[in-house]
């Protein structure tokens, strides 16, 4: 009999798959209590490293043309489609029915295509030409806010993750995603998809572990520009929002019952992570 070769699930930082710096792991079990995998219990130092990676590449990523960013998002969709069977398997392991698992994967692919399409259109939508009382051409346009930390929702292992990453990065931001503790395998496998999709290392970083351990450090971190959380306890949400005031981070608290449904996709989710820059340009008298 052949011994199966099992995958070591590691975290994703700066385009590499290191183990957690802490050397701590946790057991991911399915509803019946069977062990699915040992996952990294990421520490604040992993978060710090991920943020350094995200910051390092943010300027370069934002500098890519909108068209190119769209191509790269489309490429993620292509890679995900090709790995459909693997994700369906992993979702079934977590207790999904075959039908629901397939829906979760296919909607995730479509979600990526949706945001790929928005890449060269949201700027037009959110830009304005402003009337001013003087000889100036005055216009406002959105620019990426920078580094975003996202807490993945606990009710959508893949579609939730994708629906957060896509609007964040299509707008030129980079991100660190704290995967849902109970579906970390899917998140790590998605990191492999990103890794083979022309997404520069560091644009997306994925950590597995306990949100309540990692997120407070993100909300205090001066080099994080925005935090998107989905399902925190009231107590934790309040402390995250309070700490975020330290450097006036954007806080987005948006969650959906069904992340596969169309209401979980919107250009306004891109806008959530944009800053508006206004320029005054003199015009001829």
């Amino acid at each position: 009999m052949r011994i199966p070769v099992l995958k070591t699930y590691k975290i994703y930082i700066g385009g590499e798959f290191p183990r957690t710096e802490s050397g701590r792991y946790y057991e991911l079990k399915n509803k019946k209590g069977d062990l699915i995998a040992n996952l990294c219990l990421s520490s604040r130092k992993d978060l710090r490293n991920a943020i350094v990676a995200a910051r390092g590449v943010q300027h370069k990523w934002a500098g890519k043309t909108a068209y190119n960013k769209g191509q790269i998002l489309y490429r993620i969709a292509e890679m995900l489609e090709g790995r459909k069977a693997q994700f369906v398997d992993e979702l079934i392991q977590l207790g999904y029915s075959a039908k629901d698992a397939e829906l979760e994967v296919l909607e995730s692919v479509d979600r990526l295509i949706y945001y790929a399409g928005w890449s060269d259109k949201y700027t037009q939508l959110f830009s304005t030409v402003n009337p001013v009382a003087g000889p100036y051409f005055n216009f406002s346009k959105p620019e990426p806010t920078g580094v975003v930390v996202a807490q993945a929702p606990n009710n959508a292992p893949l579609s939730g993750l994708v629906s957060q990453i896509a609007p964040i990065i299509v707008g030129g931001n980079t991100c660190v995603v704290i995967a849902d503790e109970l579906s970390g395998t899917v998140a790590v496998s998605f990191a492999e998809v990103l890794h083979s999709s022309d997404v520069p290392g560091g644009v997306v970083n994925i950590l597995t572990g306990k949100t309540e351990e990692i997120l407070p450090h993100a909300s205090k971190h001066m080099d994080v520009n925005a935090v998107w959380f989905t399902d925190l306890s009231k107590e934790l949400a309040v402390s995250v929002e309070t700490d975020a005031a330290l450097n006036v981070k954007r806080i987005v608290n948006t969650n959906y019952k069904k992340w596969t449904k169309e209401d979980a996709q919107s250009p306004y989710l891109i806008q959530e992570f944009q800053e508006i820059k206004t320029t005054w340009h003199p015009i001829g008298m």
């Binding site: 710090r48 910051r55 450090h217 205090k220 971190h221 001066m222 080099d223 450097n247």
Partner: peptide, 9 residues
Amino acid sequence: TGVYQSLDY
């Protein structure tokens, strides 16, 4: 301060 810093500051 106990808080990770940013080069912005």
